[in-house]
Design a protein around this nucleic acid. Sequence first.
DNA 1: AATAATTATGCAACCGGTTGCATAATTATG
DNA 2: CATAATTATGCAACCGGTTGCATAATTATT
Lengths: 342, 342
Amino acid sequence: MHSQKDVTIYDIAEKLNLSPTTVSRGLKDHPAISKKTKKRINDIAAELGYRFNTFASNLRSKRTNTIGVIIPRMNSSFMSAVLAGMEKVANEASYNLIISQSLESAEKEAVNVKTMFNNRVDGLMVSVAYDTVGVSQFEMLLEKGIPLLFFDRTLDHPQCTSIVIDNYKSGYLATQHLIAQGCKNIIHITGNLARNVYADRQRGYESALKDAGIQADPNNTFINVLDEQAGIDCAQKILKMNPLPDGVFVDNDTCAVNCMAILMNNGIKIPEDIAFIGFNNDPISRVIRPALSTINYPGFEMGEIAAHKLIAHLNGQQSINSTNSIILRSELIARDSSKRIK
Amino acid sequence: MHSQKDVTIYDIAEKLNLSPTTVSRGLKDHPAISKKTKKRINDIAAELGYRFNTFASNLRSKRTNTIGVIIPRMNSSFMSAVLAGMEKVANEASYNLIISQSLESAEKEAVNVKTMFNNRVDGLMVSVAYDTVGVSQFEMLLEKGIPLLFFDRTLDHPQCTSIVIDNYKSGYLATQHLIAQGCKNIIHITGNLARNVYADRQRGYESALKDAGIQADPNNTFINVLDEQAGIDCAQKILKMNPLPDGVFVDNDTCAVNCMAILMNNGIKIPEDIAFIGFNNDPISRVIRPALSTINYPGFEMGEIAAHKLIAHLNGQQSINSTNSIILRSELIARDSSKRIK
DNA sequence: AATAATTATGCAACCGGTTGCATAATTATG
DNA sequence: CATAATTATGCAACCGGTTGCATAATTATT
């Protein structure tokens, strides 16, 4: 239960008749220290069970080499890929990542920002919660010159870069694809239109309809939180429609497959009666039958690029303020859930 | 880009003609400071934009109020639930969580342990990687008296408590269920048998077979990493068997649904030809058709209990060493993928 | 061998809260 | 009103690396 007194660089210095300065530099592989001395230092450090004190270091140097990440949830394969990409880049540049979830709550998100702020992260990467309003909760960071970067779900701010896919184009492509399969009465299931991702896809949806000479019906846009239950609820709502829609574009695969499952239970044939297309290319889209058409989202790259960009800024190589946004490529994957034309 | 000089308690002290000591105590709501003074301190702190310096505090007080968590991956609904449970309890006790992924690699896990160690976590909760061997990488923690707790995928150590479900019983129940549905030739798809979870389920599987008078065939146990690809590979392997098995018990829903999908593509009827049962009750198990029978795993509670236990130890309320393991209830959920008897 | 150039090491102040103990200020008690 | 008891505040050392600048040690140059 009780811990020994910690070994410090002073203990090592004493053992070797060196100054703490030299020990500190030796451990950090400083070029001014001779190889011989470095070896002696490292050997003794290992022998005594020395461990580096991050707090003393951070306190003095005023740098933490830590980057904060705040995301809505981490239990999606997309987010998991983003994090993996970030971690890879951060690791290579010897930065640590502190990750926290807002669980889609603006309130919790604000608390997380504050915690990150107190933990003195060098920079912060955020994908905002479902109901976040305004950017005021981030101002304290910017006032202190802590760089802030948004990815996927972004906010508009003159000092922040955003990393996104072209959601407008993706929404357009998905809708156009359904139209090409003969759909004329298409539902769009989306989220809070205050979020760029959903607003842009909705715009894409509307443009595609318009370009095909179809009048967009506001009642055909369903707004909800896009989780499992929402998918089920949407299915119930669709079953009550008359006439039934002949195509559904859902902004999230999880929601889409749950919706499909209920409809199929009720005797509706997919894609013959209703064609479906989702979003994200989650693993589930490949397993369900019929396999779900979807938009592929480059999560890993998004994470890599976000982390690269932020670290380049921190290292003074390239300011984050010069860029407005970086747009990654996304692509449509057509599978059986939408293929009506053989 | 450039940050102002930070506001410290010294600045506040000067403004109010107080000592830094009083300011420090005032901010911490110390009982010896009068209400009036506390208010003055907090007002000025807010006005100047003071932020607490965690490093200075941690350095001096030698406590971080931070708990480390190392998990194989966070992109499963089970792990996400565990983390949510941990975070809830930790928050309430004003502890922070640092979460990192081993990505199933023992090597990365060891690096993570070291980082946590250097970051001076007050305690550590671990679910070990697929191929972790031995406990030596954790010894440095125990030597310093840093409490270590395992959950789900555990290691045996006299000083560590484990939080688990009864994997033996779960494996027994799953197998027994398939037998009750008329299966006689049952495959068990499992993971590295050095991991308690897989070894225990395998024992349960064997016992259930034995109790039903069925001879366990070693060739009927498939060992792999239980991911999507593994599910596909297992399906190929099963298709080549003669006779085909009539039941499959998979230790993970993701792997199970991928395996099922391939078999169904090849004309095999589920559950008529082969009955399936998975493990974890992932959302996917409810969406796939036929819906996948599975074992429900209390992730959120597991997280809560683990965090509670560790924090009680840290607060000196209940030593972790007195407990060997805590076993949570799990349950079988029978769905269409295994129901052959109407 | 003397001096310059280079390499290696040390000094001492610093980062900003925290804490045991002492002291000042206020209130209660006789 | 004096003294005890209680409450509020301050002193000064401390936690353990870091860094600008000075100095010592070694190697190169003439």
